[in-house]
Design a binder for these strands. Structure first.
Length: 592
RNA sequence: GGGGGCGUGGUGUAGUGGUGAACACACCGGCCUGUCAAGCCGGAGAUCGCGGGUUCGAACCCCGUCGCUCCCGCCA
């Protein structure tokens, strides 16, 4: 080893020890005959002193050293003088007086300051990601990630789970997200697909009898990016046999709570995790992934609104829509332009407009729509939305999906503006009792709301034929601070039910056989009842780290346009490679 | 595919039609034995992302384009 100790471990009790340290020059402070070097390695920072009167040769070396040089220091640990102790550093009571300093490798002046407080732009950070990763923020995030994944592995292993790797080169299934394809050299014209998740494979592992499987699984989806979405991302993929929903929920909840409390500084708001039915979360928050760090619940005022003389409201209710409302605390004084901003948010969600009533400090109401309501109706409205003097009541009237989404977006925005969410809190909640299907109006068929292997509730199986909309599934999502952080279900393990689902979602039996024949066939060889879940590792770590996007917790993430700025991927390839793969590039015709 | 924001020395920003593009940090040189965001003195460094246009004159206005980013669509 080129070092005897690391740069974070030496303390006053080590005074007198001869040590060899190696690492990077974090900072250098030259005082003429005395030079201080903050030596950084993965474990911390230790101050090295080069004193011309102690070791002239080491001092000469230190004077030539620059930021980010890789150096090795031989010297002796000594306690600092009392007035020179730095209480802000874990190693601040000691320093290493250098006998010898060796440059293991010099460094060009870095393109941005590794140790500075100014945050470089993401473009710059991504171009030199290996330097970005030297920064404390990234080091901390990577360590958190390691600790979290280690916790998951140990937790599951202790409970009888076995980690099994599944193929990265697998089969394309056109359902779901766009696939990343890999051409086959030996099968001209044929392609592998990178897995969107190991869904089918983990179910097959249950058929194989492993009973408890997990994998830290890389998943690939060729869809456009968001702050919480990357083209390749990591799931803690899990599946269990002979379990019911409750078993999965209990186990995962125990895992998440243990992990958060062991590896992060965040507080879990509510334990055990609250459970909301899909219907209840829509009713109260307008979304299936609410941020429960704050209240600000929605009210349904359709009944009162339908009694009014306000045509906009009455006509919406008559045609099956909803009038939903939200009391924005303390915003009665909002100006026309501030309200227009909020209306813009509602409109982005598809709403046609935003109606408001301000509740003045004396309780009187100010609004352009009060004239359409009786005194009693107004009182009932205020009562129903729970508005206090000083609040601004926001109304959206539209078809249910739009009214809910618009109000949910407004709720989120108000949470942000009014700083209602505690950044140190994680508010987990289970969402359960999802509908099995969503109606796809365009294609005139039912789409699975989770995926096609999700089991209906046993007591709802009979409804598959008569009222598919009413069928609830055994799907469960784990939501935290407005993010979906896990999703899973008890699966179908009976061929008959699976084929009924295929039929309802408009998949021909022949197509199903072509795409999922291996799975259907497997179900005929003694498939145990089974279910599982897949927590999103990147999102969980992002939340535990308090970071605003998952790029901050991924060592080498892709940009918005799915590129790697450091390596320059994707890139063109040698024509010979293409030829071998039987691929010809078709150039887009020049525009104009 | 669509909408918004941003792009100015190495880094982060200011400058929004008129002299020599300003500031901080970093960098280079000098001084300096108790600093820890060291300090003091001096210095170098920018064709203002790229292309075109408007104008007597463009970092600034217009059009296009590239890149980063946020959002919609998309994400079983």
């Amino acid at each position: 080893m080129l070092k005897s100790h690391n740069a974070g471990e030496l303390r006053a009790k080590d005074a007198g020890k001869r040590v060899t340290l190696a690492g990077w020059v974090n900072r250098r402070r030259e005082h003429g005959g005395l030079i201080f070097i903050d030596l950084r390695d993965r474990w911390g920072i230790t101050q090295v002193v080069a004193d011309i009167s102690h070791a002239p040769e080491a001092h000469r070396a230190a004077s030539k050293i620059r930021a980010e040089y890789v150096i090795q220091v031989n010297g002796t640990v000594r306690e600092r003088l009392p007035q020179a102790v730095n209480p802000d550093m874990p190693t601040g009571e000691i320093e290493v007086i250098a006998d010898e300093i060796k440059v293991l490798n010099p460094a060009k002046n870095p393109p941005f300051e590794i140790t500075g407080e100014v945050e470089p732009t993401e473009e710059v950070r991504m171009r030199w990601r290996y330097l970005d990763l030297r920064r404390e923020r990234m080091r901390r995030n990577m360590m958190l990630r390691h600790n979290a994944i280690l916790y998951m592995r140990n937790f599951l292993s202790e409970r009888g789970f076995v980690e099994i790797e599944t193929p990265i080169l697998f089969k394309s299934t056109p359902e779901g997200a766009r696939d990343y394809l890999v051409p086959s050299r030996v099968h001209p014209g044929k392609f592998f697909a990178l897995p969107q998740s190991p869904q089918q494979l983990k179910q097959l592992l249950m058929v194989a009898g492993f009973e408890r499987y997990f994998q830290i699984a890389r998943c690939f989806r060729d869809e456009d990016q968001r702050g919480d979405r990357q083209p390749e991302f990591t799931q803690l993929d899990m599946e269990m046999s002979f379990v019911e929903r409750e078993d999965v929920l209990q186990l995962v909840e125990e895992l998440i709570i243990g992990m958060v409390e062991t590896v992060s500084e965040k507080r879990i708001k509510t334990k055990p995790f609250p459970r909301l039915s899909y219907a209840e979360t829509i009713e109260r928050f307008g979304t299936d992934r609410p941020d429960l760090r704050f209240g600000l619940e929605l009210a349904d005022v359709s009944d009162i609104a339908s009694q009014s003389d306000f045509r906009v409201f009455t006509s919406v209710v008559q045609s099956g829509g909803l009038v939903r409302a939200l009391a924005a605390p303390g915003l009665a004084g909002y100006s026309r332009s501030q309200i227009a901003e909020l209306e813009g948010i509602a409109k982005e969600a598809g709403a046609k407009g935003l109606a408001t009533i301000a509740v003045e400090a004396d309780g009187s109401l100010r609004s352009s729509i009060t004239k359409f309501f009786s005194e009693d109706q107004l009182a009932a409205l205020v009562e129903k939305v729970g508005a206090q003097p000083g609040d601004l009541i926001l109304f959206v009237a539209d078809e249910p999906a739009i009214a809910n989404e618009a109000l949910s977006e407004l709720r989120t925005e108000l949470g942000r503006r009014l700083k209602l969410a505690d950044p140190n809190e994680l508010a987990f909640t289970w969402i359960i009792d999802f509908p099995l299907f969503e109606w796809n109006a365009e294609e005139e068929r039912w789409d699975p709301s989770h995926h096609m292997f999700t089991a209906p509730k046993p007591e709802h199986v009979a409804l598959l034929d008569t009222d598919p909309a009413a069928v609830q599934s055994q799907q469960y999502d784990l939501v935290c601070n407005g993010y979906e952080v896990a999703g899973g279900s008890i699966r179908i393990h009976e061929r008959e039910v699976q084929e009924k689902i295929f039929e309802l979602i408009g998949l021909e039996i022949e197509d199903a056989r072509e795409r999922f024949g291996h799975l259907l066939e497997a179900f005929e060889y003694g498939a145990p009842p089974h279910g599982g879940i897949a927590p999103g590792v990147d999102r969980l770590i992002m939340l535990m780290a308090g970071e605003p996007n998952i790029r901050e917790v991924i060592a080498f993430p892709k940009t918005q346009r799915a590129a790697d700025l450091m390596a320059g991927a994707p890139s063109e390839v040698d024509p010979a490679q293409l030829e071998e793969l039987h691929i010809a590039i078709v150039r887009e015709p020049e525009a104009k």
